[in-house]
Simulated assay, not measured.
Amino acid sequence: MNLKNQLETHLTQIVRDRDPYMASAGHFFVQEYIRASFAQWGSVDIHTFYVSGKACKNLILNLPAADSQNRDLPPILIGAHYDAVPSSPGADDNATGVAVLLELARMFATQPIKYPLQLVAFDMEEYGLLGSIEYAAKLQKEQQPLRLMISLEMLGYCNSNPGSQIYPPPLQHIYPSRGDFIGLIGNWRTLRDLINISRSIRKVGVASQWLPVPNKGHIVRQTRQSDHAPFWDAGYPAIMITDTAFLRNPHYHKPTDTIATLDLDFLTGVCQGLEKGIRRL
């Protein structure tokens, strides 16, 4: 099966009501689907944390470096949240990120890279980045260094009409008005990685724009709205890969966030470009 079909197969399983409270059966189904997908490539660690007595789960797949001499290098962490808001099937937000996460797991398990990898499916992002806050704090407490953290946050909505992309000011004067690119947003420490991964994405034929932000993103608050932000706050180099969410996608957090609204060729290109970019780190 080719990559586009693989991604679509994942999407058909993940896209459903899966709010942890209002649609707990759907949430559990997706959790188990991710766990089973990860389990094909290694043992799955479950990081349990509690929210008002409710047990929540981050799912983690650790993959070794290609060369055993590099197994002590700081890992690259790639994450995506699997929960969704109530009454939305969450196709773009964030089934697209999870689908790409599962495919990157397959790619890097069968052909390892220079660095060890941690692939993490975060829970409770929609309730205030709770899963990533807990996990970043855990790594910080353990004094675990990271080569880079990459958050996959909405990767499949594309609109090439002029004016389809909006921005928080003053970014509209710098970036294109068509929402047909994938965005990379990182803290200053990731500048070289932003440039290199963006270049790899462009090489596969997908437009890409990158933005380094100072001060942990507090100047442009919209840059903090995903699971990379707790890693910025903990002092880690971290990047969000995104189609810019509500700044482009009119179906954001709505019942209309369905597979039919996605551009699967765009999503496939993003996945291919990310694989190439991560391999070059």
Rank of each mutant, 00 (worst) to 15 (best):
residue 7 L to E: 05
residue 7 L to W: 00
residue 8 E to L: 12
residue 8 E to K: 12
residue 8 E to P: 00
residue 9 T to E: 13
residue 9 T to M: 14
residue 10 H to Q: 06
residue 10 H to Y: 10
residue 10 H to G: 02
residue 10 H to I: 01
residue 11 L to K: 01
residue 11 L to Q: 05
residue 12 T to E: 07
residue 12 T to V: 07
residue 13 Q to L: 06
residue 13 Q to R: 11
residue 14 I to R: 05
residue 14 I to S: 06
residue 14 I to C: 06
residue 15 V to Q: 00
residue 15 V to T: 08
residue 15 V to L: 00
residue 16 R to W: 04
residue 16 R to I: 08
residue 16 R to D: 09
residue 18 R to T: 04
residue 18 R to I: 09
residue 19 D to W: 10
residue 19 D to Y: 11
residue 20 P to A: 04
residue 20 P to F: 03
residue 21 Y to S: 09
residue 21 Y to G: 09
residue 21 Y to T: 13
residue 22 M to G: 11
residue 23 A to G: 11
residue 23 A to C: 07
residue 24 S to H: 07
residue 24 S to F: 09
residue 24 S to E: 09
residue 25 A to R: 13
residue 25 A to I: 12
residue 26 G to H: 05
residue 27 H to Q: 00
residue 27 H to I: 04
residue 28 F to H: 12
residue 28 F to I: 09
residue 29 F to N: 08
residue 29 F to P: 02
residue 31 Q to S: 13
residue 32 E to Q: 14
residue 32 E to G: 08
residue 32 E to K: 13
residue 36 A to R: 14
residue 36 A to E: 15
residue 36 A to G: 14
residue 37 S to H: 08
residue 38 F to A: 10
residue 38 F to W: 09
residue 39 A to H: 14
residue 40 Q to D: 15
residue 41 W to S: 15
residue 42 G to C: 11
residue 42 G to M: 11
residue 42 G to W: 05
residue 42 G to V: 11
residue 43 S to E: 15
residue 44 V to E: 01
residue 45 D to V: 00
residue 45 D to C: 02
residue 47 H to E: 04
residue 47 H to N: 02
residue 47 H to D: 08
residue 47 H to L: 03
residue 47 H to G: 03
residue 47 H to V: 02
residue 48 T to C: 03
residue 49 F to W: 01
residue 49 F to R: 02
residue 49 F to H: 00
residue 50 Y to M: 11
residue 50 Y to H: 10
residue 51 V to I: 11
residue 52 S to I: 15
residue 52 S to P: 13
residue 52 S to R: 14
residue 53 G to K: 00
residue 53 G to T: 03
residue 54 K to G: 00
residue 54 K to P: 02
residue 56 C to S: 07
residue 56 C to K: 04
residue 56 C to G: 03
residue 56 C to L: 05
residue 59 L to S: 06
residue 59 L to D: 08
residue 60 I to V: 04
residue 60 I to C: 01
residue 60 I to H: 00
residue 61 L to Y: 09
residue 61 L to M: 07
residue 61 L to E: 04
residue 61 L to H: 06
residue 62 N to L: 10
residue 62 N to K: 15
residue 62 N to Q: 15
residue 62 N to W: 06
residue 63 L to M: 08
residue 64 P to H: 06
residue 64 P to I: 06
residue 65 A to K: 04
residue 66 A to H: 03
residue 66 A to E: 12
residue 66 A to K: 13
residue 66 A to Y: 05
residue 66 A to P: 06
residue 66 A to Q: 12
residue 67 D to A: 10
residue 68 S to Q: 13
residue 69 Q to E: 15
residue 69 Q to C: 12
residue 70 N to S: 08
residue 70 N to I: 07
residue 70 N to P: 06
residue 71 R to G: 11
residue 71 R to Q: 13
residue 71 R to N: 15
residue 72 D to S: 11
residue 72 D to K: 12
residue 72 D to F: 10
